[in-house]
């Protein structure tokens, strides 16, 4: 009896710790090592074919024009996508929270729905909507007198098309977080403001937004990290084309690792991306702390 209770906690957490060690912690060490080697298919078949190359992969990848394009594209996705997702999900959350009627609860389901559906299925559907000849979007545009849009065939427009898809998928989750935070604000603040004759706009900017500060920080950091790893949309919709116009850093790493079997090179790329994510997250935390002090 005494014996079982002594070992019990380790039995409960043991399997988790073993799996996390094998699939999360050990892989980091392996990744560090192979990023310093020329590991490829030959190396996979026979480990004696692997040779140590020092930091050559890192030097090569930082001068690889396609990798640099992928970093630029990723930055494009982040700069346009992140503010859009945050503003849209906050706006939807505010509007749903504003509603007095129970019918407003239906909107939570409607706006959240795209987030739970499969990315491949959704990409298949949007590829059809975006089809230049028989797609719904161009049909609607031409029937109200606009020109056809090359949704996925012109590099810049293709990036924007992927952002639109990701925005559609991304609103739901953040909206739910904002609604949860909005419901946590005490009604007494608003009652006091209304007694003082504050307008809706003043209540929004003086009470709601400041009270949401932590939710906004949380959402902007997680959204930023997510968009820096932008992968599934270009992977399923465009494979990075046209002319590498939509290739993201994550997609570049995947393609080099699993399509060209340049494991060492791809591992080096994954660390470059990891460092960028850490640097931007720290910068964001610092900026927000500074803002909070003012």
């Amino acid at each position: 009896m005494k014996g079982t209770s002594k070992y019990a906690p380790y039995v409960f957490i043991g399997p988790t710790l073993i799996l996390l060690t094998v699939f999360s912690l050990l892989p980091i060490l392996v990744a560090v090592y192979i990023s310093l080697t020329d590991m490829d298919l030959a190396g996979l078949a026979d480990y004696s074919n692997i040779s140590f190359v020092g930091f050559r992969n890192y030097a090569d990848i930082l001068s690889d024009p396609i990798f640099l394009v992928s970093l630029r594209n990723t930055l494009f996705y982040v700069i346009i996508g992140v503010p859009l997702v945050i503003v849209c999900s906050l706006a939807v959350a505010l509007m749903i929270n504003f509603g007095r009627n129970r019918a407003f609860k239906i909107f939570r389901v409607v706006y959240y729905l795209p987030s739970v559906t499969n990315v491949v299925a959704v990409a298949v559907v949007w590829s059809y909507l975006y089809n230049p000849g028989i797609g719904l979007f161009n049909y609607i545009l031409t029937s109200i007198g606009f020109d056809r849009v090359p949704w996925l065939t012109e590099p810049t427009i293709a990036k924007l098309s992927l952002i639109l898809l990701a925005l559609w998928r991304g609103i739901g989750l953040n909206m739910i977080i904002f609604i949860a935070a909005l419901q946590g604000i005490s009604r007494s603040y608003y009652e006091a403001a209304q007694l003082d004759g504050a307008s809706n706009w003043q209540q929004l900017t003086r009470i709601t937004i400041p009270m949401l500060r932590y939710a906004i920080v949380f959402v902007s950091i997680t959204t930023m990290i997510g968009w820096l790893q932008f992968f599934e949309e270009p992977f399923v919709m465009t494979q990075g084309g046209p002319l590498n116009g939509t290739v993201s850093a994550s997609l570049f790493i995947y393609q080099n690792g699993f399509q060209y079997s340049h494991f060492g090179y791809a591992a080096a790329g994954s660390f470059v991306l990891f460092f960028i994510i850490i640097a931007i997250t720290l910068l964001q935390l610092k900026l927000q702390r500074k803002q909070a002090e003012e």
Binding site: S24, Q229, I253, G257, A267
Partner: peptide, 21 residues
């Protein structure tokens, strides 16, 4: 804390070594 810290490791970093393991 270690368990929580694993959440911050991006999938791209572990993807290739997990495959190799």
């Amino acid at each position: 804390l270690l368990v929580l810290a694993t959440m911050m490791i991006p999938g791209q970093v572990t993807m290739i070594p997990v495959y190799l393991i």
